[in-house]
Every structure is written in C-alpha cells, then in structure tokens.
Write a protein that binds this DNA or RNA. Structure first.
Length: 458
RNA sequence: GUGGUUGUAGCUCAGUUGGUUAGAGCGCUAGAUUGUGGUUCUAGAGGUCGCCGGUUCGAGACCGGUCUUCCACCCCA
C-alpha cells in the first residue's frame, strides 16, 4: 500500500455529520445577522501581501501564510539578500500574495475600495475561512472559520449595544447558557496608563494586565517591571488587582482612579452607557461583565473591546471577540470612518456545543426513504414512484445495485434512513408499495398516494 | 518562533529489563437466513509497529532526525 495520504498540520476534513453540525451553527448565526440588518459580502481567500502585512503587529506578520510567486521566482531575488539568508527581504521578493488572516482587514480594504458604491452606515456580515501559520492546539487550527458582523460609518454607541444583543441572540438560539461577554474600552486602558505615567508603555502595560487571571498579581507586576514600568507606577495600579464586585462597583472605583484623566473618563462614560442600557433592555442567556484587564487587538481597537468566554467548566479559549476601531480604513487612505464589529469563532463554538451535547438531534439532513432494488423491472417501477416523491420534496434514493436484501437493509440501517420501500412482483401487479418503518419494524402496503401521504407526515 | 508530549489493524487500545510467527474489543467481509436490518453463532480478511537513519547477534521497545497529535509559552477565534 502506498503511503497514507494526510492533510496538512492544523487542517481537517469534515464528515457529513460534522458538516451538518457546522451548517447548523452557521445558519443560526446568519439568521441573527440578517435580523439585525447585516448584509453579506465575500472577499478573496488571498490578498496582496501589502494589504495584510503590518496590520496585525509583528506577531501577526509571522503568522500570515505567504503565497509563492508563480514562475521562476528566484531569478528576481537580490543575490545579497539570498546569500545572507535574509528571510524578510527574500520573502518580500518571492511572495506578493498572502492568505487572509482575518475578515476585518479585508473588509476595511473592501470599504475603501468600494466607498463610492457603499451607503453608510454599512452593516456587513461575512462568514469565511481564515488561515494562520500558528502551532495547532486544542481549539486552535491553521484553517478556521470566522463569522463577522461589522458596522462602518457610524460612531454611535447604539451599535455597541446592538452587538452585545447580537451575541446574546445567537447564543440564545444555540441554547448555549452561561456565556460571559466581557467588555472593556481602550480609552480606559489609555487613561490608566496616563494616570500612572506610563503612556509610552501602553501596549506592554495592557498585555501584562491581560494575563492577570492567568499568572496572578505577582506575575503581572513582575512582567511590568521587566518591561520597564516603574515601581511607583505599579503601586498606583494596586486598586485594579482587587477589582471585583458588580459592574457598577467597578465603574465607581475606576472613576476615582481615573478622575484626572480626560480620556479615561470618556472611556468610563462609554462603557457605562453600554452597560446601563443593556441592563435596562435585558439579555437572554449572556452575562455582560466589565473586565478592565481585557486587552485584545490593541493594534487597532480604539473604543470598546469585546471578548466572549466559553461557559465555565469548558476548557476553551475565547469563542468570539470584537471592538471599535476608529481608523482602520485610515491605513488604506479613507480617514474618519469609524467601525465596530464582532466575530464568532465557528470552530470553537462547535467544540463547545459538542462537549456540552447541545446539538439538536434533528441537525442531520438525511434521506427519508430507501427503495430496495430487486432487479431491472422492479427498479424501473421504483424509479417512477421515486420521481413522484422527489417532486413532493421528499428525499429518496434507490439502492443502486441488485444486492442481497440483507445488505440493502443494512445500508438503510447504517445511513439511519427511517423508511424502506419494498416493491417486487406482487406490488407491481397490485400497483402498491410496501413501506417499512425501520425504527418500529412495522410495515404496511399502500398505493402511491398513501406512500406520499405517510412520508409527508413523518 | 521556544520547551515538552504523542504515534501499534478502519476505530479504541494492550504488548514485561530488547528475544521465535505483534494481540484484544469494536468495525469490516462471507455464511447460518434466495422478500426483511438491529440480536446471536461460525469462519475470514486486514499491520513495512508514523517515516528515515543509527546502536545490537537480534528493535514495536533503545538513540538521532523528521512528520503528526496534544500541552505550556507567545499570540489568538
């Protein structure tokens, strides 16, 4: 036997059962996207490298899959760069395209490119695979799907509120209880950095703070010291480490911490508006929680930051994230267009639903009835009925070969086809069909109308 | 990108300090059953022990490399 074929690291095949479950999640998300007024777009799986490079930070650039140029790509490479093994320089000369890394940056490119055709505010959703050259782990793949909903062209905080509701609506429809939507605001983080006199260390400061629940207070302080944040500054952060209680209490202590920072106060104001409004309106299954340690996507978020955690007890990273970016299209030359959006991690939501056994039993679309093949004349008789049933929208198939009956029955059994029709010489003579219910084992002989009627009912 | 971990039949896994012909359960194929699946019984097929190299009289087991799996960093959905 030849060497067993395989798929590349971090990629997967999907069986019919898995596709059915994935479709269920996607249809659920899509349904809510539409109800909230978002319209679908799609963008190419690969972009020009310059569109993607430099948009996700240094780490992001490393994780972007580069596509090799066609043809004799080495002939144009600078000899010096090649002999010095200068990968960065060589890559830029042999690769001009790259697989998309997320859906937000291609969307920003789309908005700028089509700005004259778009009616703002533009609400779009997009559900497509993205690729990252990361090292795979549980719930982390090199090819995975994101389901994004973004609004551009409006700075209104009502969008943030709607997006929280959108998260809640989707997870309610998936019957996924106990999820937490964490919210923070970049302006609050900037305010804190300002108050402690570490504005220039904003990123290092927030990245360290983000790890609080992972490495603890001492770990965070240690990392901040290593990054050159002064002991004095860290001392001022002390209130943050004992930050708990309700959202209101947190906002209160934040207010006293940030009273000297204009930007900090603005951030508090924004978060407060979102939290209070959501509290008024109510959520179905989700919990909205202010988390000042939340600091993702800092390279472009400027206002709200969202992250959705899996329910407690499920070992899984975040299953969604998002935020507001005031100037994402700015890098492509369109200034002053504010955007806010959220993303659902399809593959991780799948793993969570699987672990909690939350997929409905009816998810799998299946053939409803199998016609047993007894021979040529019988198959022809069966096909006439089959055509009629298909017109009525009933999924039906004929076993293709005149195999032994046991084999055909076993096939129906394994495929979990709920009904089997037996039509041999006797039935042909009487213009009838014998319909067998595979679950109960009962069977009855009916004419074509009776057959349609019974299959439509069940 | 750093450190660790895993790989034996289609699947889940045994396999003793290195020692004849590598096993089990499930699944698969055939028969008992020529118009009746699931249960039962009987028989059978199926392995370059991830791959490449090394140590050894002898390697599934030990060593090195590589790929893969999972985990911790990093980062993230």
């Amino acid at each position: 036997m030849a060497k067993k074929p395989s798929v590349p690291k971090g990629t997967r095949d999907f069986s019919p059962q898995e596709v059915a479950k994935r479709n269920y999640i996607m249809e659920t998300i899509k349904g809510s996207f539409k109800l909230f007024g978002f319209q679908p777009i799609e963008t190419p799986s690969f972009e020009n490298s310059e569109t993607l490079m430099g948009k996700y930070g240094e780490e992001g650039d490393r994780l972007i899959f580069k596509i090799l140029n066609s043809g004799d790509f080495l002939s144009k490479v600078d000899d010096v760069a090649l002999s010095e093994k200068n990968s960065n320089q060589v890559v830029s000369q042999i690769s001009e395209k790259a697989l998309r890394y997320d859906l937000t940056v291609p969307f920003a490119r789309y908005v700028v490119q089509h700005q004259n055709e778009i009616t703002f505010p533009f609400k779009r959703y997009q559900m497509q695979p993205v690729w990252r050259a990361d090292r795979p782990q549980k719930g982390r793949f090199r090819e995975f799907w994101q389901c994004d909903a973004d609004v551009v062209g409006s700075g209104s905080l009502w969008q943030e509120i709607e997006l929280v509701q959108l998260y809640d609506a989707v997870f309610a429809n998936l019957e996924l209880q106990g999820i937490t939507i964490k919210i923070n605001n970049r302006k609050i983080l900037s305010g804190i950095a300002e108050v402690i006199g570490a504005e220039d260390k904003l990123i290092d400061f927030t990245v360290a703070l983000d790890k609080l629940d992972k490495i603890g207070e001492e770990g965070v302080k240690k990392e901040m010291l290593e990054k050159g944040i002064s002991r004095d500054a860290i001392q001022k952060l002390q209130p943050l480490f004992s930050f708990n209680g309700s959202n209101e209490e947190k906002l209160k202590s934040l207010s006293s911490l940030l009273q000297t920072s204009e930007i900090g106060k603005k951030g508090i104001e924004e978060v407060q508006f979102v939290i209070e409004t959501i509290q008024n309106l109510g959520l179905k299954v989700a919990q909205l929680e202010l988390d000042v340690t939340l600091a993702r996507g800092l390279d472009y978020y400027t206002g709200a930051i969202f992250e959705v955690g899996a329910p407690k007890g499920v070992q899984m990273g975040s299953i969604g994230g998002g935020g507001r970016y005031d100037d994402l299209t700015g890098v492509f030359g369109l200034k002053g267009v504010s955007g806010v959006g959220i993303s659902f991690g399809l593959d991780r939501i799948y793993l969570v639903l699987e672990e909690l056994s939350l997929f409905p039993k009816t998810v799998q679309e299946n053939t409803k009835v199998l016609f047993i093949n007894f021979g040529e004349a019988e198959a022809l008789y069966a096909m006439q009925a089959i055509s009629n049933l298909r017109v009525k929208g009933i999924a039906v198939e004929l076993y293709p070969d005149t195999a032994k009956m046991g084999k055909q029955m076993t096939y129906a059994d394994k495929r979990e086809i709920p009904f089997v029709v037996l039509a041999g010489g006797n039935e042909i003579k009487a213009h009838t069909y014998t319909l067998k219910n595979m679950k109960s084992g009962e069977q009855e002989t009916v004419d074509l109308d009776g057959l349609i009627e019974r299959l439509k009912q069940n």
